[in-house]
Amino acid sequence: PGRLLAPLDLGAYAIGATRLQVVGAPYHRNNVGNLAVYRFFLGQPDQGVTVAKTWQLRYVALRADDFGGAAAGTLAEALKRGAPPPWLRRIPTRERALFLYRVQGGLFPKQPAR
């Protein structure tokens, strides 16, 4: 269980194939979540960490052909070339064209004890 941020069309598959919550999927009424996906992947890594904190992400997924025209310096480009920021750790998959990352613990503030 946890929350996944992935490109919109991949998010739709994750809803049906996993127990994960997704931030964005190709549904027109999820403007806030869908915009967060684009800001995450097409922004700088420091913008990505803000999105990760806001949405309390556990996982990030991206395929090799997603955001093909992403500019140098964007988080999508860094992830696809295997240079994630320190707050993301690659999870090996059998599918070579799928990049799966786990958001590192300690990124989010601890919840107060009850």
Rank of each mutant, 00 (worst) to 15 (best):
A113Y: 13
L35T: 15
Q56W: 06
R63C: 14
G2M: 02
R3V: 15
L98C: 01
T54D: 12
W55V: 13
L8R: 10
Y13S: 09
T74C: 12
L42P: 06
R96Y: 02
R63D: 09
R29T: 13
A6W: 04
G2Y: 03
L100W: 12
R29W: 12
T74W: 08
L42T: 08
P86I: 05
Y27G: 03
A97S: 14
G105S: 15
N31P: 00
G48Q: 10
R89N: 12
W55H: 15
I91V: 14
V22C: 03
L5C: 00
I15F: 04
G11R: 05
A76S: 13
R96G: 08
I15H: 05
R39M: 10
A64H: 08
V22F: 06
L100T: 06
N34K: 09
L98Y: 00
R19H: 01
V60A: 13
Q111S: 09
A36K: 06
Q21F: 06
T74D: 11
A6F: 09
G68Q: 13
K110V: 05
I91H: 02
F108Q: 00
R63V: 12
L42R: 07
K53H: 07
L5I: 15
L62T: 02
L20Y: 06
R39Y: 10
K53Y: 04
L4F: 05
V22K: 03
A52D: 05
F99S: 11
P109E: 14
G68N: 10
D46V: 10
P86S: 14
T74G: 07
A6R: 08
P92H: 04
A25P: 01
P26V: 05
Q104Y: 00
P85C: 08
G69K: 05
N34F: 04
P7S: 10
I15A: 11
R96S: 15
V51A: 08
Y101K: 08
G82Y: 01
R81T: 11
R89I: 05
Q21N: 14
P86D: 15
L98S: 02
P84D: 13
V32A: 15
A97M: 05
P86W: 07
Y101I: 09
D65S: 12
G43K: 02
N34Y: 04
L75N: 02
P85S: 08
G24C: 09
Q21W: 08
R89Y: 08
A14H: 06
P92L: 09
A70F: 10
F41D: 03
D46E: 15
L8E: 13
R81N: 04
T74K: 06
V32G: 04
R3H: 07
Q44R: 14
K110G: 11
D46C: 09
L5K: 00
Y38T: 06
I15P: 01
V49L: 14
F41P: 00
T54K: 12
R19L: 05
P86N: 11
